[in-house]
Design a protein around this nucleic acid. Structure first.
Lengths: 217, 217
DNA sequence: CATCCATTGACCAGGTCGGTCAATCTTCAT
DNA sequence: ATGAAGATTGACCGACCTGGTCAATGGATG
C-alpha cells in the first residue's frame, strides 16, 4: 500500500507494460498539465483527456494523483541526468566553455521537451502543496550534484581572487531565465539565433569580469 | 452598472469614508492575498478574514471581487507613480546614477509594501483570468511611461555605439529579480547590506560594458 | 423608542476536484 | 462459438471551495 509513496518502483507495472507510444502520450500529457498548473489545479481529467484516454484508465495505471506526479518527477530526474551529463563534460576544462556547452544542451532539451523546465520550476517553487515536502530537498540535491558533476574539474586558476564560479553561474542562469521569460511574454515565436547571440555577449562580459586579464582571449 | 468596470471612481464611496486604519487593513489584506494567489484562487473569504472583517462587509464595500481587484490595481498604480517619480529623478543625468537611485527607491517600497511587487508580477503574468484582458495593456503602458519619465533626460553620449540603455536596464532587472527570488527561496531573513554590495558590483560591471571607456570612472 | 446604517455569518447555487465502479469492449485460448 | 481475463469507459459520488446574498443583529443618534 505504501510502496507507491516511496519511489515509484514497481508501482506502475501495468503502466510499464504499455506500448512506448501510449506511455509517452500519457507522460507528455502529465508534464504538460503539471507544468502549466500547480499541483492542486493540475486536473486529472485534463491529463487523461490530453493523453486521449479515460480518467478511469489513468487511475488504473496510477492509483492516485500523487503517485502519478512522483512518477513524472522521477522520470524527469532520470532524463535530466541522462541528457545533461555526458562524457564531453569531462573533457572540457574551461569554465565558460562548459557553460556554453551546457547551455546548448539545455536549449536542445527545451526544444525537445518543452514542458520539462516549467515542470521543474513548479516543483521548486511549489508551496503548501501535498507534494512539496520532499521535493525541495531532492531538487537542491540534484542541482548541487549536477553542478559538481559538470564543474568539478574546472580550471580554477583562471579566476580572479574572490570570484566564486558558482556565483557567476547563478548570475547567468538568472539573466537567461529573465530573458527567456521576457521573450516568452511577447508571444513571438522563438528567434533562436538572436537568443544565442545575446547570450554569447553576456558570456563574454562575464568572462572579462571573472577571469584574470591574461585569460580573456 | 458598468462604472465599476471602468476605473473604480465613485464605486467605493462607502469604502472611502472609512477610517484610514481600517481602509489600510483591508487594502493590505487584499494585496497580501492577491499577491500570493492568482486571481481565481485569491479567496474573498481569506481576504475578509485577514482584514479582520466579515465577508459580507467586504462585499458591502466592493460590490464584487473584480471591482475590489481593480481598486487595488489603481491604488498600486498611483502609489508607484507617487513613490518612484520625484523631482530628484529629473536632476540626475547619468544613467547608472538614476539606476542606483531608482533601485534604492524600489528597495524602500519593497520593505514598506512587501506585497506590491508580487502583486504587480501576478498582474503581468496572469493568464486566462477574468481580469487579465485590460491589465497587460495597462502594465506595459505603465512600464514604458515610467521608463520615459525616469530615463528621458539621460546622457546618451556616454554609451558605446550599438548599446541600448533600455536593454541594459532590463538585464539588471532580471539579475536582481533572480537574486531576490533566490534569497527569498533560502528562507533566510534579508541581508540588505549584502544585496546592496552585490548589486553595486553588477552595476559597475554593466557600466564598463555599456559606457565608452572615458566614462568608466 | 424608532430610525438608520454598519456589520455579521449562515447559507446558497455553481463549479471543480480526486477517485470509484458497474458496464462494456478486446483478446485469445479452447 | 464460447467464455474467461484483462483493458477501457464515463457517468457518478461526495468533499470541498468559490463568489455572492440576506435576514438578523448591534449600536449610535435624536
Amino acid at each position: 500500500m505504501e510502496l507507491a509513496e516511496a519511489g515509484g518502483v514497481g508501482m506502475a507495472d501495468k503502466f510499464e507494460g504499455l506500448s512506448k507510444e501510449k506511455r509517452q502520450r500519457i507522460i507528455n500529457a502529465g508534464f504538460e498539465v503539471f507544468s502549466q498548473n500547480d499541483y492542486r489545479r493540475a486536473s486529472t481529467d485534463v491529463i487523461a483527456a490530453r493523453a486521449g484516454i479515460s480518467k478511469g484508465l489513468l487511475f488504473y495505471y496510477f492509483h492516485n494523483k500523487k503517485s502519478l506526479y512522483l512518477y513524472l518527477f522521477e522520470y524527469l530526474k532520470k532524463m535530466l541526468i541522462k541528457l545533461v551529463v555526458d562524457e564531453k563534460f569531462m573533457e572540457i576544462t574551461d569554465f565558460f566553455e562548459i557553460l556554453e556547452y551546457s547551455t546548448q544542451k539545455k536549449m536542445e532539451i527545451w526544444q525537445k521537451h518543452p514542458y520539462f523546465l516549467d515542470f521543474a520550476m513548479r516543483t521548486y517553487f511549489s508551496e503548501k502543496e501535498d507534494v512539496s515536502p520532499f521535493l525541495k530537498k531532492t531538487y537542491k540535491e540534484l542541482e548541487v550534484a549536477l553542478y559538481r558533476q559538470c564543474f568539478s574539474h574546472v580550471d580554477t586558476y583562471k579566476f580572479r581572487e574572490g570570484i566564486d564560479p558558482f556565483h557567476i553561474l547563478k548570475l547567468l542562469v538568472w539573466m537567461s531565465d529573465g530573458y527567456l521569460r521576457e521573450v516568452n511574454m511577447q508571444g513571438n515565436g522563438w528567434d533562436m539565433e538572436a537568443i544565442k547571440k545575446e547570450y554569447d555577449g553576456w558570456i563574454r562580459m562575464l568572462r572579462r569580469e571573472a577571469y584574470k586579464e591574461e585569460y580573456w582571449l
